[in-house]
């Protein structure tokens, strides 16, 4: 209720005194969203965490001087000692170094899949929404088909038949399986925007199709795509870890938290530290990206406030 009461008088005041509004710089959706984000503690915390994670994955050498692949079986499953705060895993590798070096795979997969899915799904879905016709009909059937394959199930079946286990294979397969979700959202968003008066006005003024798409439709239709992509980023990291844990995602020599958790899980009952540290790092990473997604959604989707 208070929302309603607040809005009405301010709207009336603005209408009555247009001069007062002129002095204030007009705020676009993006300026407004940035203003909201900056003041949101959730955003600040998650942004700092993500900054740290990106630094760790770009320069892991800054955080540890131990080689994550230098292992000594004498130290198998030894707990925390001086110089090795997280202890050692089954192979006698330093858990701290492996946790630090494991960040790169997760962060790379998360960011690349999100960008790839947003670009591919956004462009294909957006074009289908704008032009309609046979491509729209075909795309709708394709998204229907992919909707029937859950990401985890599809990833398990698809990745198990190929030999490679590099970061790029996993990224390519995850993009191939998840772009239709974003395409659907981009399509419906573009259809809504396309019918707005300002698009009709631009058309009536004789603007070219390219200009209408880039200047009028794109900036107004992109918000839902950004919101869903940001929230999905954390989920992609979680799914990559699950696939690696099941033994079909990332494979050695790539160091990843999913694999480390999987090998630790075999004997975690007498050495839980091997499982807890990579699992904690993984959960914290997913948490910070999901928090970022929540904050971005709150900023870009005023209806949910």
């Amino acid at each position: 209720m208070p929302d309603l009461i607040e809005k009405t008088p301010s709207g009336a005041a603005a209408a009555a005194a247009p001069a007062a509004e002129k002095r204030e710089k007009p705020r676009s959706l993006w300026g407004d969203a940035w203003g909201t984000l900056r003041r949101n503690p959730v955003f600040i915390i998650s942004a700092l965490l993500i900054l740290l994670l990106v630094t760790v994955s770009a320069w892991p050498g800054l955080f540890t001087s131990t080689d994550p692949r230098a292992c000594n079986l004498d130290q198998s499953k030894v707990g925390s000692t001086s110089g090795h705060p997280f202890g050692f895993d089954i192979q006698g590798c330093d858990v701290y170094a492996r946790t630090i070096y494991g960040a790169r795979a997760s962060v790379t997969v998360g960011i690349c899949v999100t960008v790839g899915v947003a670009l591919l799904g956004g462009v294909l879905g957006g074009l289908a929404g704008y032009f309609g016709g046979w491509w729209d009909a075909l795309l709708s059937r394709i998204t229907d088909i992919f909707f029937g394959i859950p990401l985890l199930l599809g990833g398990l079946v698809f990745l198990s038949v190929i030999k490679g286990g590099s970061v790029w294979t996993v990224i390519a397969f995850m993009i191939a399986l998840s772009w239709p979700q974003i395409a659907r959202i981009a399509r419906s968003s573009v259809i809504t925007v396309k019918q707005q008066d300002y698009v009709q006005a631009a058309k009536a003024l004789g603007a070219s199709t390219t200009r209408i798409m880039l200047r009028h439709v794109l900036p107004n239709a992109i918000a839902p795509v950004i919101v869903v992509s940001t929230i999905a980023l954390g989920t992609y990291i979680s799914i990559e870890a699950t696939l690696s844990y099941l033994g079909v995602g990332l494979k050695p020599p790539t160091i990843s938290w999913g694999q480390d958790i999987s090998s630790a899980a075999q004997q975690y009952r007498n050495a839980p530290h091997m499982l807890l540290w990579p699992a904690g790092a993984l959960s914290l990473t997913v948490l910070s990206f999901i928090m970022l997604g929540d904050a971005v959604r709150d900023a870009l989707d005023p209806k949910l406030r």
């Binding site: 954390g234 979680s238 870890a241 699950t242 844990y245 958790i261 899980a265 975690y268 009952r269 839980p272 499982l275 699992a279 993984l282 959960s283 914290l284 997913v286 948490l287 999901i290 928090m291 929540d294």
Partner: peptide
């Protein structure tokens, strides 16, 4: 709910198994 969403299923599974059962 935010915490539950962030922790991957297999981590929750092992944590639950470790603390509740073992």
């Amino acid at each position: 709910t935010l915490v539950v969403i962030s922790i991957p299923v297999f981590v929750i599974g092992y944590l639950a198994q470790y603390f509740l059962a073992v």
